[in-house]
Write a protein that binds this DNA or RNA. Sequence first.
RNA 1: GCACCGGUAGCUCAAUUGGAUAGAGCGUCUGACUACGGAUCAGAAGGUUGGGGGUUCAAAUCCUCCCCGGUGCACCA
Length: 598
Amino acid sequence: MLRAVVGWEPSFSARRGFFVLITLLEKELRRAVSAVLPDVEKPDVRVQPCQNPEFGDYQTNSLMSLAKARGLNPRQLACDVKDRLSVQDWCESVEVAGPGFLNFRLRPEAVIHLIATALKGDHLFFTTQSPAQRVVIDFSSPNVAKPMHVGHIRSTILGDCLARVYRLLGHQVITDNHIGDWGTQFGKLIVGWKEQLDTEALERDPLAEMDRLYKDVHQRCENDPALLEQARQELVKLQQGDPENLEIWRRMTSYSQDRFAQLYKRLGVKFDFSLGESFYQPHLEGVVQELLDRGIAQYSEGAVVVFFEDHPELAGQPAIIRKRDGGFNYATTDLATLAYRLENWKPGEIVYVTDGRQQLHFKQVFEIFRRWHPEARIKLTHVWFGAILGEDGRPFKTRSGETVKLSDLLEEAKERAYGVVSEKNPELGESRKQKIAECVGIGAIKYADLLPNRQSDYIFSWDRMLSLNGNTAPYLLYAYTRIRSIFRKLREVDPNASLKVQVDPAKARLAAQEEWVLAKQLLNFGFVLKAVAEDYRPNYLCNYLYDLAGQFAKFYETCPVLKASEEEREVRLALCELTGRVLKLGLETLGIETIERM
RNA sequence: GCACCGGUAGCUCAAUUGGAUAGAGCGUCUGACUACGGAUCAGAAGGUUGGGGGUUCAAAUCCUCCCCGGUGCACCA
């Protein structure tokens, strides 16, 4: 590896597919650590960008924890490892700093090389992960006969985003919408349907009509035991396969699915499967019996229950898998679902995206499943999120106190975005304004949802999410349109300019500070995508894109592109082009569509 | 009562999970050549990270005890 540098000739060809310098450095560091400490198996070494450019471009802190764990002098270890490193292809210096940091300073040639190869389309600063995994992502899960509301939006947007990230990184993703299409609510719904269905209203807005029926019967049941009993009877008949009730159920499901499909289309969300709760009904009896047979479950107070007395966190909180009346509940369904997925799809991981209130439920289900299938090598992950609150800090509701329907929310987003676009850019044609409003409005909602740490509650604010300043979808979309505008203008300024931007790595220089900073930010795209996948946290990507857009804005202010000399223009156009590509792909990965003008 | 999650600038949120000087936006104040889209950019002010104690080279982050808030805890999903 050590060799004289006579004209810079990268050895990347020997490492095809590695376009993330951090990954290369980590690999080389692991090799060096193993050389210094031969008994360390697969050392856990992580490299990250320096937050303070004075220290360098990348740093590792891992040697200090490694030294600590082994009672070594951390600074000495850092020096030893440094001596064994051969990273001169990519770094012009490696320094030991402080108690044992290792700081790397990148060679400009290496950065230029990555810029040039990215322009050619060889990569976009990330690599697919290997080995590829098969991942099932379970999200959205609306209920039949109820309108989707804000409660579903985070699951839908977060789950869709995670699916996109995993796919981008080369994993095989199966998305499955576990629709709530079976359960006790159908007793009341069928009573309402038979008694007072308004067919016109049903045609107009089926979910609103079914919601009305349910609420009406539900309310009357409060002080009408006879009606409640009637609802129970209808439910029993449905469960026993009564043709009339089954037909009503089918129609309700069908109406709901149509309506869900409209919303998903508007949101750009797709599912590979929509296997609802009803799909698993035939399996539930067997699940309970098997858990009883194996001694995992037992009878208690007439119900079938699983206890976790030896489990510190779950002790005293049993899970019911069959009710005293013989009915099953959602724990049973989730267990049957898990078994089905394991057997038919053989995934390496299943990710459940739901709100935080279901934490206990999934802990129980996962624990039962591990007892039931101790041999299964599968990672089960509950990706949970906090609530959406109104500006008063209480659960997000309409003025009249109703939950906000998702379709209304999307429509309002579009209207508000339309207002902003019309004000800023009144000369645009009507259809273009409509298109922009749709993109900006939906994008703003999605972005506002993905930006906060998913585990915290967040306050929903139209003004903030639609602002053109700050960390918002409109700001990022605007940054993208400015880039596109440069390329439109380029053809006016220089009709002969090639549409395909290229740089000559031998001649190109990142002379200005702003160019250098921007280029290095581009390089970190892959690092961030990986972090998003590891922690199931799209907000890392949001923050990365916001930083990228901010660094582009500074570059744009200080480095003229079209007015620059030909030599300068080449590399600046390259930075514009690649920033545009990363912004576009990054936003797409968040589920947000980009536009050329706004 | 038990369990889980949170408390960071006036407000809304970050902080690559133990790293170097805790960062953005809004709001407040001051600036920027007629400006490749000003829907922008630069700068200032603003902090004992709820409080105490501990662990160590290093703590918003880990341990412990309090205070405050949210959520969940046997037949709804």
